[in-house]
Design a binder for these strands. Structure first.
Lengths: 140, 140
DNA sequence: GCTTGCTCCTCTAGTCGCTAGAGGAATTAG
DNA sequence: CTAATTCCTCTAGCGACTAGAGGAGCAAGC
């Protein structure tokens, strides 16, 4: 069984060394076995698992979700409804965030469009910030 | 001069009490004067300033930007170019975030669309997460 | 005057997902 | 054998709060 050190795992999975230790501490990676000199050793399964984690993080899944996805991935006979549900929740979350940001975008654009590059005294941006009533959004 | 307590300021500006203290500590609000019993007292100007801060936060400006905007708002004769620049930077930031989220959204949607509700063994979601090569995005 | 209950005070720690740095030990290359 | 590199643990920091402990001040009702 060939084993690799944490730096090599870091390179193979494109995850920084301290992040790997952080994932171990958070229980996403099993506690690594150690050499005599107390250094962590890893194998091919760890590379796969860490790549899975990294990819899920890139897609914006949070650590709790990833923990659940990893657990599920280890039970290949179970129906994938739970996996689906996690992804669906995440999609809904992303949609929410896009919607909120799109609203903000419209506000900021509108402020900028109204600003006529004069003095701060008559700057619409400052006025809108100062007086909520002047503003487009109503969500409070 | 009528003064109000922190709880009343909290209600009038819709900002929670600990958050007001936090803003004071971060220098967005001046250090409040105190009663004999060491309680903070506020006036109308504080209500206006805090509402400005809250509104800017709702629009997603970060505290450093708000600090700058508050400074600028106090110099009404200056040209509003700097105000504009801050808002413009913020707009660009929001656009970035929307773009990234839109990319993620497409990924997640595509995974979900490919999942045929079978077992985890053949779940496309798990497969895509496990193998980066299967994935749409290329940004790494 | 006294108690009850609310508001306020300070201080610390927790959230999320890392990242950075200190200070030291182990390994590897030359 | 030494120098460079990699690794170890531990602590603290980011942003913008939020939550809670433990205690003091204050207004209203009896």
């Amino acid at each position: 069984m060939k084993t690799i050190a944490i730096g090599e795992l870091s390179r193979q999975a494109s995850v920084k060394v301290p992040t790997i230790r952080f994932y171990e501490e958070r229980g996403l990676l099993p506690r690594a076995s150690r050499t005599e000199g107390n250094r962590r050793t890893y194998g091919a399964a760890d590379v796969r698992r860490l790549r899975f984690i990294r990819h899920a993080r890139e897609l914006g899944f949070e650590i709790e979700d990833i923990r659940a996805l990893l657990d599920l991935a280890e039970q290949p006979e179970r129906p994938c409804g739970e996996v689906d549900a996690i992804a669906r929740r995440h999609l809904a979350d992303i949609d929410d965030r896009i919607a909120r940001l799109t609203g903000l975008r419209a506000e900021i654009r509108s402020m900028l469009d109204q600003c006529s590059q004069g003095r701060i005294r008559e700057c619409r941006i400052v006025e809108v910030l100062a007086d909520h009533g002047e503003c487009l959004h109503e969500e409070h």
